[in-house]
Amino acid sequence: MTAHEIEEYLAPMRHEFADPRSLILPALKFAQGESGWLPAEDMAAVAEATGFSQAYVESVATFYDRLYIEPVGRRVINVCVTLSCMLRGSDEIFDHLTDYLGLDGEGTTEDGMFTLAKVQCIGACDRAPCLQIDSGEQIGPLEPADATCLVDDLREQPAPARYER
């Protein structure tokens, strides 16, 4: 992702903000869309496009759970484990997925296909236990077998044109 591409993306929204600092978060999300995470070159490009230092841009990026400063899998499987989901079996869903993916808890599969993550409440407790693929629609209520079907379906799909984490 080049600074120029980011500038072009930001151009139509610049007038909506009294301070260009507000453009950093949209720029980071846009940049992350290309490779699915934020390598240092992308941080530098965001810094150049917004006019702030790379150190500052990184200080913002590191605050947010859904901005990834290390590589993650092609798809991130976010399993909600907060109270309402726990009461409905989220830990069983998570454990089932770790077994199925051959992981030892949270992490990325060797083939780089999936990152499995425990996340905090995603606002879909009526669908508990639920999960979210990247930042897609909250899916649930799930049984362990549903979760593995979902993984099988995702394996068949091509990489998304843009990552929406």
Partner: peptide, 9 residues
């Protein structure tokens, strides 16, 4: 303006 957060309670 719709502004998207990035994951922080």
């Amino acid at each position: 303006t719709l502004y998207r957060g990035a994951g922080a309670y």
